[in-house]
């Protein structure tokens, strides 16, 4: 249990710092802004109570906002995804529920489950985030393009981290 908390805390710090110090300053192409800190929220345990997930998401959003200088924006988007998470999990649950020791990772749940989960998760978050940033529907389609392209880049990073950090663990 304690081990678990330490692991999640480390993931929190690493991902928030990577987000705030590296990805914020990365400019691959216009419209590409990945938000890898979502991976931390995605990988919280299945059996964590929804209210706790929401509060953690709220706090995570705050720290990202501090780095981005946009107090409120990531907070709002993360809180929304923290709220939706339990619903998404319920929707995607296998017929006899999640196994006791399973984690929301590729190795435990398989590629098709994980990709669906990540795609829904990222899309809801990015949608909320980019329209809040614009704060109007004035440039609806160009904002929508940002949602889709940034979402794909986040997805790519999430998948790559799954390859990097989780496949080797299975071999052990």
């Amino acid at each position: 249990m304690l081990n678990e908390i330490v692991r999640h805390s480390i993931r929190f710090f690493v991902l928030v710092l990577v987000q705030g110090l590296i990805l914020k300053n990365m400019d691959v192409a216009p419209y590409v802004n990945p938000f890898i800190y979502l991976l931390f929220l995605m990988q919280l345990p299945f059996d964590m109570p929804p209210w706790l997930v929401m509060i953690i998401a709220f706090i995570t959003g705050f720290f990202v906002d501090v780095f981005y200088g946009t107090i409120g924006m990531h907070m709002a988007a993360s809180t929304l995804i923290g709220f939706m998470r339990s619903r998404i999990l319920k929707m995607l649950a296998p017929r006899d529920g999640y196994e006791f020791s399973a984690q929301p990772t590729v190795q435990d749940m398989g590629w098709s489950w994980f990709l669906t989960y990540a795609a829904i998760f990222i899309l809801i978050h990015h949608f909320c985030l980019f329209y809040l940033e614009m704060f109007s529907f004035r440039e609806f389609f160009s904002t929508f393009l940002r949602v889709v392209i940034s979402g794909m880049s986040t997805m790519l990073l999430v998948v790559v981290t799954q390859f990097l950090f989780y496949r080797s663990k299975k071999a052990l």
């Binding site: 409120g72 907070m75 709002a76 809180t79």
Partner: peptide, 17 residues
């Protein structure tokens, strides 16, 4: 409680924003 907590936190974020 969950919906209420959500509305509270979301409202707080919006307020900040």
């Amino acid at each position: 409680y969950l919906v209420l907590l959500f509305l509270l936190l979301e409202g707080l974020s919006m307020y900040f924003l």
